[in-house]
Simulated scan of single mutants.
Amino acid sequence: MPNIEGISVQKSNAERKSYVVVGAILSCSSGSQLSRLKMPFSHGVFVKGKPQMNILDFVPNVNIMPFGKCSSLKNPAVASATAANNGVLTPMPCTPVMTMPWIDGKPDKMVGGHPALLNKSTNMCFHCGLIKIEAMGRIWVV
């Protein structure tokens, strides 16, 4: 970081937590592209005018959309295509399969009766992809 009038600014190692609102960008460790977190209806809680998400906003193809092409061999479509291609990894269209709520919500901040979703929250696809909240849509926790 640059010096400003003799003051050296250091990057903090402290974890910054933020609430997640509709439109946050998601990634999957097995997917080929990013996706956006969606919400068909609001929980009635807004932060800076944006609907706030909770840990139960994990439904595939409702809240969590496909991530392009999946490269996980735990995905039967990828395993089958790879076997048919003489063992050469053959990514196939992503069909996310989540069976549980987001992990690491904020239990002392309820949104629609459930813990608020935070930028550090994660989820796992049944095909072993780690789903994370990457950017945008976040509002910093005070």
Rank of each mutant, 00 (worst) to 15 (best):
I4F: 14
I4R: 06
E5K: 14
I7S: 08
S8A: 03
S8M: 02
S8E: 10
Q10A: 15
K11W: 09
K11L: 13
N13S: 15
A14Q: 14
E15R: 13
E15N: 06
E15F: 10
E15I: 15
R16E: 14
R16H: 10
K17C: 01
K17I: 08
V22C: 02
V22S: 02
V22A: 06
G23C: 00
G23K: 02
A24R: 09
A24I: 11
S27V: 02
C28K: 02
S32G: 01
Q33R: 09
Q33N: 03
L34K: 02
L34N: 03
R36D: 08
R36L: 13
L37R: 10
K38M: 12
K38I: 02
M39R: 11
P40A: 06
P40K: 07
P40T: 08
F41R: 09
F41Q: 11
S42P: 06
S42I: 10
G44S: 02
G44I: 06
G44H: 07
V45G: 01
F46S: 04
K48E: 15
K50R: 11
K50P: 00
P51R: 10
P51I: 09
M53F: 04
M53E: 07
N54Q: 08
I55V: 15
L56R: 10
L56N: 12
D57R: 05
D57E: 09
V59Y: 05
P60G: 03
N61E: 13
N61Q: 12
M65F: 14
M65A: 08
P66H: 11
F67N: 03
F67T: 04
C70Q: 11
C70D: 09
S72K: 09
S72P: 06
L73C: 04
K74I: 01
P76E: 10
A79D: 11
A81Y: 02
T82H: 09
A83I: 04
A83W: 03
A83Y: 07
A84P: 01
A84F: 00
N85M: 01
N86Y: 13
V88N: 07
L89Q: 13
T90G: 01
T90S: 12
P91C: 13
P93K: 03
P93S: 08
C94I: 06
P96T: 13
M100A: 15
P101Q: 05
W102A: 07
D104P: 00
D104C: 13
D104R: 12
G105R: 03
G105L: 07
K106V: 06
K106E: 12
P107V: 05
P107C: 04
D108C: 08
K109F: 14
K109R: 07
V111R: 05
V111N: 07
V111I: 15
G112W: 06
G112N: 05
G113V: 08
G113K: 10
H114C: 12
A116T: 00
L117F: 03
L117A: 05
L117E: 07
L118V: 01
L118T: 08
L118P: 01
N119I: 09
K120F: 06
K120A: 10
S121V: 12
N123M: 07
M124E: 03
F126Y: 04
H127S: 05
H127G: 01
H127W: 13
K132I: 05
I133N: 03
I133P: 01
E134R: 05
M136G: 05
M136D: 14
G137M: 07
G137D: 11
W140S: 08
V141A: 03
V141R: 05
V142F: 03
